[in-house]
Structure formats: C-alpha cells, structure tokens
Amino acid sequence: MHPFDRAFRFVLPVGAVAVLSTVLAVGWFTQPDRFAKGYAPEQPIPFSHQLHAGTMKMQCLYCHSGAERSRSAGVPSAEVCMGCHKVTRTDRPAIQKLTQLYNAGKPILWQRVHTLPDHVFFDHRPHVNAGIACQTCHGEVQTMPVITREMGMRMANCLGCHRDPHAALPKDSKITRGPENCSACHR
C-alpha cells in the first residue's frame, strides 16, 4: 500500500468529519440569544398581549397589519396605539410615555422578539393567507403578559411544519406540504 493511500482512505475522511463537527458545534453553541427559545427583550413601553389579545380579544392583524400584505408583520406605530389611548387609560405612566412619543412625532422603539438570521427569508403573507394561526409559531400570545419566544428559530421547526402542515392549517385547506427547496427560505 502506498503511503498516500492511507492518508486518502483514513486520515482525510476523519479530518473532514472533525472539521465539520467543529463548525456545526460552534454554530450551534454560539447562536445569539435573540434566536433562542425563551428570548424576551425589555420593551420601551410595557405591553400586555394577555390584556389586549386575550381579555379584550383584539385580533393580531389590528396591530400587526403588515402580515397579510407584506413580508414582515410589522410592529404597531404610536398612531395605532393612540387610536384607543387618546381616551383610554390616559392616567397610566406607560400611556403617558406613549402620548409623549406620539406628540413629539417619535417612533416607539420596540425590540423584536422573533428574529431570524440574515440568511433566512421569511414571508408572513403565504402563512397568514393560508389560514395558519399566529399562535402556531408565536405561541399562545393571548396568555402572555410579556411576549416570549416560544419556538426556537431553528430550521427543523420550519421543515417539520412544511413537511406535515396539517396541524397548523384549517381543516378545509387543500395544502398538503410547504416548499422544502433551499431557495424557498434561503436567499
């Protein structure tokens, strides 16, 4: 056996597996907190989805109106909040802060809870328009006083639903699978 044969048959494959394992392990364990389950950044104004979406039964699309017509669901502007809070609970410190921002023409600097890595493309429109409930990915927000990420933002979660979407879709849906090709989510 030639000395190089041993290298090609044993050393190179073992080395390749070691390098690949190291890269995957580093990628997994150095994932930023903003992609992990349980992430709940502090918001500039305390907002309870439990009160608004739960007790008051406000629809998600009232505040996150972009979900039906754009890639991003968006976060509500001060104008949306002031639609009610010009007259409702105006004595509360958080609403007074909201009013100050609104009167000054400043945006509310909400901190995103559900973020994806830059190399991932996600569009809310096909999901919302297929009838998939927001709670499928975002958790039971109507029970959360503080929004917390309930689903880890891992590719396996998305692929699991794309391969078997029946639990997420309305019973009368004709959709049997979501796209699984790489370019559907990675651009």
Rank of each mutant, 00 (worst) to 15 (best):
M1F: 03
M1A: 04
P3G: 02
F4Y: 12
R6C: 00
V11Y: 12
L12C: 02
V14C: 05
G15I: 05
S21F: 10
S21A: 15
A25F: 13
A25N: 04
V26R: 03
W28H: 11
D33F: 00
R34V: 06
F35L: 14
E42I: 10
Q50V: 03
A53M: 13
G54R: 08
C60W: 04
Y62D: 13
C63I: 05
H64T: 07
G66K: 02
A67M: 08
R69Q: 10
S72G: 03
V75I: 09
V75Q: 13
V80G: 01
C81P: 04
C84K: 05
K86E: 09
V87N: 05
V87R: 10
T88F: 14
T88P: 00
R89P: 00
T90I: 15
R92W: 07
K97D: 10
K97V: 06
L98R: 01
T99D: 07
G105E: 10
L109S: 14
L116T: 12
L116G: 04
P117E: 11
P117F: 09
D118K: 15
F121V: 13
F121S: 14
F122M: 05
H124I: 00
R125A: 05
R125S: 08
P126F: 08
I132S: 08
I132W: 11
C134A: 06
Q135L: 00
T136A: 13
E140M: 04
T143C: 02
P145L: 10
P145H: 13
V146D: 06
V146H: 10
I147G: 00
M151D: 09
R154Y: 08
R154K: 12
C161H: 07
H162S: 14
H162F: 09
R163K: 15
D164F: 11
S173W: 06
K174Y: 01
G178V: 05
P179V: 03
N181G: 10
H186K: 10
